[in-house]
Measured scan of single mutants.
Amino acid sequence: YETDHQDYCEVCQQGGEIILCDTCPRAYHLVCLDPELEKAPEGKWSCPHCEKE
C-alpha cells in the first residue's frame, strides 16, 4: 500500500524502526521523542508537532 509518510525520523533524519504520525506525514524513532516511548503506541497516534496544534 502506498503512503506519503517520510521514511526517516523527523528529529535525527535517520531511517530504521520509526513510528508514523496518524495526522501528518512525519515519522519518529521512539527514542527521539521527548519524552521517549518504550514501545509503539497502540491505535491512533499524533506526533508532538500535531499535539501542539
Rank of each mutant, 00 (worst) to 15 (best):
T3L: 15
D4M: 15
D4K: 12
D4T: 10
D4Y: 03
D4P: 09
H5A: 15
Q6F: 05
Q6W: 03
D7S: 04
Y8I: 14
Y8C: 03
C9E: 02
C9T: 02
C9M: 01
E10Y: 14
E10C: 10
V11D: 11
C12L: 00
Q13C: 08
Q13M: 10
Q13Y: 06
Q14H: 07
Q14R: 10
G15V: 07
G15P: 02
G15A: 14
G16L: 14
G16S: 13
E17I: 14
I18V: 04
I18L: 08
I18W: 10
I19A: 13
L20Q: 15
C21S: 01
C21V: 02
C21L: 01
C21Y: 01
D22I: 06
D22S: 05
D22V: 05
T23A: 02
T23C: 06
T23I: 07
C24G: 00
C24D: 00
C24P: 03
C24K: 00
P25L: 06
P25C: 04
R26W: 06
R26F: 05
A27S: 07
A27M: 04
A27R: 08
A27N: 11
Y28V: 12
Y28P: 01
Y28K: 02
Y28W: 08
Y28R: 11
Y28C: 10
Y28D: 01
H29R: 01
H29A: 02
L30Y: 14
L30Q: 13
L30D: 05
L30V: 07
L30M: 12
L30E: 12
V31Q: 04
C32V: 02
C32R: 00
L33V: 09
D34P: 07
D34M: 03
D34V: 07
P35D: 11
E36F: 05
E36W: 04
E36R: 03
E36I: 09
L37P: 08
L37V: 10
L37H: 09
L37T: 13
E38M: 11
E38F: 09
K39E: 08
K39N: 12
A40T: 08
A40Q: 04
P41V: 08
P41E: 07
P41A: 12
P41F: 06
E42Y: 08
E42D: 10
G43Y: 04
K44D: 14
K44Y: 02
K44W: 05
W45R: 06
W45L: 06
S46I: 13
S46E: 10
C47M: 00
C47S: 02
P48H: 02
P48M: 13
P48Q: 08
P48F: 13
H49A: 10
H49Q: 11
C50T: 03
E51W: 05
E51C: 07
K52M: 12
K52H: 14
K52E: 04
E53S: 02
E53F: 15
